[in-house]
């Protein structure tokens, strides 16, 4: 086994521009042995390092069956800016995978609803791709609700036609853009719930997005009868070590890096209510 405290090298195989500030990077682990030993489940994240700059926690946006290990990254801080300057063939350091994944076992015999906001679709794409590949024989199509700021910010735009083969997809934007023809909705992602008919008692929700979206969407779902225990949210915090020894990601008594990032809503409910926890 490789050591998760020491980065290993990975080469960028290709880069795909998603939006003006976001791109997907496909990585290939250089060491054959690590390549074989490395495995992850959807929803987990890696620490990507640019030597001399630092490390950043980035969720894995490919599914385990994919050939490449993908990360979808928005330019936000020092490390992501440095990654943005890299080209195909350049190398990055990788540690991981860390954290809990999406609880796939919860979806057995239930209807899955995925709610994503902005870049929050990145860790969910992992599970979306897994479902695309495996085609579960459920009675209903899983639902995918996705909201972004503007039509130009829709990540994985070219993949949505494929998603629609399996998923019931609804998109929304905060505001329209005169340059782009938009057929989706306008408004917050929770408004999309009116567009879907679903059986709340048989629904499992996987959610990732800005915390404000979580704050709005969860009460809405609960009000419609979805049990809190069946809502899973992926949280974001400052991360440094990935294994619960640096203390940065603490969310109440939970370490987002090792207990999360995916939490059952009822396990964190009491702390979500408190500002600045």
């Amino acid at each position: 086994m490789y050591d998760k405290t020491i980065p290993f090298e990975a080469k960028i195989r290709w880069i795909k521009r998603e939006t003006r500030d976001t791109a997907t990077y496909a990585l290939k682990i250089s060491d054959r042995e690590i390549q074989r030993a490395y495995s992850f489940s959807p929803g987990q994240f890696n620490m990507l390092a640019v030597p001399g700059i630092g490390e950043s926690a980035i969720s894995i946006s490919s599914c385990p069956a994919d050939r490449d290990l993908m990360h979808t990254i928005r330019v936000a801080g020092d490390v992501t800016t440095a990654i943005d300057r890299l080209n195909v063939g350049d190398v990055v350091g990788v540690r991981g995978p860390f954290g809990s994944g999406w609880p796939i076992e919860e979806t057995v015999g239930r209807d899955l609803m995925i709610i994503a906001g902005g870049l929050g679709i990145a860790p969910l794409r992992s599970i979306i791709r897994q479902i695309l590949k495996s085609h579960p024989g459920g009675s209903r199509a899983p639902v995918l609700l996705y909201g972004t700021k503007t039509p130009k910010d829709v990540i994985f735009r070219d993949e949505f036609p494929r998603y629609r083969d399996v998923f019931e997809v609804h998109l929304t934007v905060d505001r329209a853009d005169p340059e782009v023809y938009w057929r989706g909705e306008m408004g917050v992602v929770t408004a999309l719930l009116d567009r879907v008919t679903f059986n709340p008692l048989n629904t499992v929700v996987f959610m990732c997005g800005p915390e404000i979206m979580v704050h709005r969407a969860v009460p809405e779902l609960v009000a419609r009868g979805v049990p809190g225990e069946k809502i899973f949210i992926s949280l974001e915090r400052n991360m440094d070590c990935g294994s619960g020894i640096c203390g940065h990601c603490m969310f109440g008594p939970r370490f987002v890096c090792k207990d999360g990032p995916v939490f059952r809503f009822t396990d964190v409910e009491q702390f979500l209510k408190i500002m600045e926890i």
Binding site: A76, G77, T80, R237, N238, M250, M275, E276, I277
Partner: peptide
Amino acid sequence: NFARVHGGNFRPSRRARYRQWMAHKLAYT
């Protein structure tokens, strides 16, 4: 900057940071 992420800080106030320390000592651990 302890709880800072891109575009924001999860504990911008001193009150929250002191609470984090004491709550971690006496409850979370």
